[in-house]
Simulated scan of single mutants.
Amino acid sequence: MTPTRFVQLWTHRYHKYTHILKAHGLGYMAWLHFQLVKWRTGGKKKLVAVIRTEHFGDIVTAEPISRYLRTLYPDSYIVWFVKPAFRELVSANPSIDEVFAEFCVTQRQTLLKTGIFDQVHELQFSNNNHCPVCQVFVDNPVAVGRHINIHNYFNYGNLLEVFAQTGDLIPERSTFPADDQPRLYLLDKHRSRVNALGLPERFIVVHCRSNYAPKDWPHERWEQLIDWLLLHYECSVVEVGLSSNLEITAPGYINLCGKLSIPETAEVIRRAELFAGLDSGPSHLANASGVFGIILMGSLNEFPTYNPYCGSYGRQENAVFVRQPGVPCAALPFEFVKEKIAAVLDNRLVNNTSRS
């Protein structure tokens, strides 16, 4: 072993094992915190843990579960586990008593193994229970027992129904028994930030790049579509997301990628005439915002057709799915997508204009 390789190896081990040690320490500190919670409530309230830590579209979709749990545990202290980056999505939810921004999976497992929680509902399976630093995967026994995994989960329903099943809240392959329309809880600071952007009065929001390439539509076709939208409709086009791979210089196109928090993105979407995008996090924000959605979808891995949405998008009451059975999103022809979008826009924009 060369000296350089030796240093690299032990540097890696140092970071890994100090991370694990910190995770265990933080787990026991959290146990003390929840002991104090029990003490403050006189031990009269059950502690209920809800675990849905990522991704932000999944957290938005799972929101109806918070309200359903409050009906099941009206007098309990409900704690939602989430990754720190997504804390704002849950922090203002009135059905949740506390948001626990976890350090990593090891911290969470250390805490749960103390038995401090009276009830645990895990709304995920092993691929969501992974810490790359600790190099561990943790399985959800309920998901394992019901054979729900990353390869077959859409065979069990939409995302809300899958999460409710992995959390042992509903029977296997059953529908969600309560209001399934996701809600957002935005604050004045989010509205003020968007006010400061000075957005045009009328605009369409687009989201053109997901975090999973098989869900994407080629950027050249997005550029072609946006140019066509700007030419044929009296609306600006606002792109949202983490980053953009588009090269558009036409007047009326506004690139907000990477400039907004998730709640601020939701507020921008809420103000739009409509949303056009992929099966991705922002489309779930659009569903929860009540904005009409045009969703480009295709076959995905083992699923030739699938429906991830609950609520009005899931029933296609407030959305149109643009897809061809068995065809991946990347292969959807431009003319096919344009015709589907034109049919929606020609109806909705005329109707919106007549109301204004």
Rank of each mutant, 00 (worst) to 15 (best):
D139N: 14
P141L: 11
P141T: 06
P141E: 13
V142R: 02
V144P: 00
V144H: 00
V144C: 09
V144E: 15
G145M: 06
G145H: 06
G145K: 10
R146G: 07
H147G: 02
I148S: 01
N149W: 09
N149P: 01
I150R: 07
N152Y: 04
N152V: 11
N152K: 07
N152I: 08
N152A: 07
N152T: 10
Y153N: 06
Y153W: 08
Y153C: 03
Y153A: 03
F154V: 01
F154S: 02
N155Q: 15
N155L: 08
N155G: 04
N155V: 00
Y156V: 01
N158A: 05
L159G: 02
L159Q: 10
L159I: 14
L159Y: 11
L159C: 05
L159D: 13
L160F: 03
E161I: 00
V162R: 11
V162C: 06
F163R: 01
A164R: 11
Q165R: 03
Q165F: 01
T166G: 01
D168I: 02
L169K: 09
L169H: 14
L169W: 12
I170V: 15
I170F: 07
I170E: 10
I170R: 00
P171K: 15
E172W: 04
R173P: 09
R173N: 15
S174C: 10
S174N: 11
T175N: 08
T175D: 08
F176Y: 14
F176W: 03
P177H: 12
A178H: 10
A178Q: 12
D179R: 04
D179G: 11
D179Q: 09
D179H: 11
D179I: 02
D179K: 04
Q181D: 12
Q181P: 08
Q181N: 15
P182Y: 13
P182L: 04
P182V: 06
R183T: 08
R183D: 09
L184V: 09
Y185H: 15
L186Y: 10
L186I: 01
L186V: 01
L186A: 07
L187V: 12
D188N: 13
D188W: 04
K189M: 09
K189G: 05
H190V: 06
R191T: 11
S192A: 12
S192N: 05
R193W: 03
R193F: 13
R193L: 03
R193S: 15
R193E: 09
V194W: 06
N195H: 14
A196C: 03
A196M: 07
A196V: 04
A196D: 12
A196S: 15
L197S: 02
G198M: 04
L199G: 09
P200E: 14
E201H: 02
E201W: 01
R202A: 07
I204C: 07
I204L: 15
I204S: 12
V205E: 14
V205H: 08
V206W: 06
V206L: 07
V206R: 05
